[in-house]
């Protein structure tokens, strides 16, 4: 799988240029640029208030942009019409920080929801596909008929992943997937993201604070600071970046503790 990706010419699935975001007089992003290649896992990190979640919300068109351009799948999404927007939104999945599962629906109904809305498949096929996605997200099939309130934190995240891949998206946005999980569930989740990329060929954008995830999962890490992207590098190179903000971020004891043994200097 990985070999096949290498042969293809690198194609930008997301291309952000000169992006500015303002809330009133408050400037969040100024002239921000970022490219994401097809098939890669990109993590976005940065201190609190550096506009990570805002950037994600802009990419999935939940938030309007002050100036600049965002191209996804080669199409400009800034100022996009409603019909195009709907068509494009079916090609990506979003997993929200708290899961955002519909509380009145069971896990299976949650997963099947987009399939029921957008496809011409029969009910039986949709249920079977829903179960398949639940299994792909490493949830036990017995959880299919449970309601979100009956799930543990880790299961909610996995159910949210199952819903976000229901439509077989090409692109997956994940906001803080491991926040609030125990180390084992968090590590399982890292594994799940890698596994999904390998099996479904997904491009994944992850926002995270989790140092272990950063070392394990992404191909490249984009560091947000001073209202723009300060660096996009593999984590091994990023931690050696001399930029003071980046050094401050990675020199805390918690960040150091996550460094794999082989990389400790």
């Amino acid at each position: 799988m990985a070999a096949r990706k290498m042969d293809e010419p690198k194609e930008s699935i997301i291309d952000i240029k000169g992006l500015s975001t303002r809330f009133g007089s408050q400037i969040i992003h100024e002239n921000l640029s970022l490219q994401v290649q097809r098939g890669e896992i990109l993590a976005i990190v940065g201190g609190s208030g550096s506009g990570k979640t805002t950037l994600l919300r802009e990419m999935v068109m939940l938030q309007s942009v002050f100036a600049g351009s965002i191209r996804i799948f080669g199409e400009e999404i800034v100022g996009m019409g409603l019909a195009d927007k709907k068509r494009l939104q079916q090609r990506w999945g979003v997993m929200f920080q708290s899961g955002a599962l519909f509380s009145g629906l069971t896990v299976l109904q949650n997963v099947c929801f987009p399939l029921c809305e957008f496809t011409h498949l029969s009910e039986a096929d949709i249920d079977a596909i829903g179960l398949l996605k639940i299994k792909l997200a490493n949830l036990p099939a017995t959880s299919a008929h449970l309601f979100p309130a009956e799930l543990s934190g880790g299961m909610i995240k996995r159910a949210a992943v199952a819903r976000s891949i229901a439509m077989d998206p090409e692109l997956l946005f994940v906001d803080e997937p491991t926040a609030g999980l125990d180390p084992e569930s968090a590590s399982d989740f890292d594994e799940l993201v890698l596994q999904l990329r390998a099996s479904l060929g997904l491009t994944v954008i992850i926002i995270t604070h989790d140092m272990d995830t950063l070392w394990r999962v992404p191909d490249r890490v984009a560091f947000l600071g001073q209202k723009r992207v300060l660096a996009v590098q593999p984590i091994r190179e990023l931690v050696k970046n001399p930029e003071p903000l980046i050094q401050a971020y990675f020199s805390t004891p918690r960040a150091r503790a996550a460094v794999p043994v082989g990389d400790k200097s």
């Binding site: 398949l132 299994k135 099939a141 017995t142 099996s199």
Partner: peptide
């Protein structure tokens, strides 16, 4: 790869009767 994955997973995904 996809055919194998789906074959593998659907074998496991037993229907849970409501």
């Amino acid at each position: 790869h996809l055919m194998q994955l789906v074959t593998h997973v659907s074998a496991e995904a037993a229907q849970i009767p409501e």
